[in-house]
């Protein structure tokens, strides 16, 4: 099975930490404090010295949210949806200059939100070790999804990966989570559709199907009817593949080959009848 993060480009922000600008990097499904050693060691040191490291707190806050369903509610939808973090608001989590790049409305592809560095900056992290009140907890979450440079999208992807797995494996928590999962899928499919079709008045009927069910997008009596699994969030949305070459992407299957990543996309044209397959290949630039 392919790792869930394949195709999602690395991203990086700078974080003022201990009087210096440090790099925090998202790569292969993990957030890494590039200028620190082992996170647990650093946290122990910080506790002893009573000086928390912003980078370390950010990484810890990220890890706490991997399974948090509210990430799917609060996090970005794509399209015209934008996160605003008010730098003067104490709930802003200390994020001052974080800017979330607006995602492209159509024709996006892997890496379109992959600002490699410097897109966001964190001043004086206030990510709590363990938020002990609901407002603090939500403020932490908002600060994370508002980090900028595609970190919000990657946090959604992280939570989507976790819940795709739980849906596949089953478990007592899945039934309770279903309305949130369905709404998370609905909002992002709808955002993509409105942007793709250029019709803000369009309406969507979404049926969240099982992973093996055929995926489809049709028009039924004026409304767009979608049959998609929750995994679409991970397979397609997380990789910024919602629309490719003017087509809506229903599925994206990655394959590792000797010369890079190879993708097969199942798409539907704006007439909502014509389905086509698109093949994409990502290869490292020689000598880079």
């Amino acid at each position: 099975m392919t790792d869930w993060w394949v195709g999602i480009a690395p991203a990086e922000i700078t974080v003022p930490c201990g009087g210096e600008d440090h790099r925090v990097r998202w790569e292969q499904g993990r957030v890494i404090a590039c200028d620190h050693g082992d996170v647990e060691d650093e946290r122990t040191l910080a506790t002893l010295g009573a000086t928390p490291f912003a980078c370390i707190e950010l990484v810890a806050a990220w890890e706490r949210r991997r399974h948090d369903l509210r990430v799917l509610v609060v996090g970005p939808r794509g399209g015209s949806d934008e996160i605003h973090v008010d730098p003067d608001d104490p709930r802003a989590g200390g994020v001052r200059s974080a800017r979330r790049r607006r995602r492209r409305g159509g024709g996006g592809f892997v890496g379109s939100f992959a600002t490699s560095s410097g897109g966001g900056q964190l001043v004086g992290s206030r990510f709590s070790h363990s938020p002990d009140s609901e407002p603090d907890d939500v403020a932490d979450l908002i600060a994370l999804v508002g980090l900028g440079s595609g970190f919000g999208e990657r946090l959604v992807a992280t939570a989507a990966a976790e819940w795709t797995k739980r849906l596949r494996d089953g478990g007592p928590e899945v039934a309770e989570a279903l309305p949130r999962l369905q709404a998370a899928l609905y909002g992002r499919v709808f955002a993509a559709l409105r942007s793709w079709l250029g019709d803000p008045a369009s309406s969507l009927e979404l049926e969240m199907t099982g992973a093996a069910h055929p995926r489809s997008l049709t028009r039924v009596q004026g409304a767009v009817h979608a049959q998609l699994p929750f995994a679409w969030l991970l397979d397609v949305w997380s990789r910024d593949l919602t629309t490719v070459q003017g087509r809506f992407c229903l599925d994206a299957e990655p394959r590792k080959t000797a010369d890079g990543e190879h993708w097969e996309l199942e798409t539907v044209a704006p007439d909502l009848r014509t389905t086509e397959r698109i093949e994409l290949r990502i290869r490292p630039v020689a000598g880079a």
Binding site: V74, D81, H84, D86, D89, E134, G146, R180
Partner: peptide, 15 residues
């Protein structure tokens, strides 16, 4: 509460 938090991430009135 979930959607108030979502709005809070987008708009001051949401906060």
């Amino acid at each position: 509460a979930d959607y108030a938090a979502a709005e809070a991430a987008r708009d001051a009135n949401g906060r």
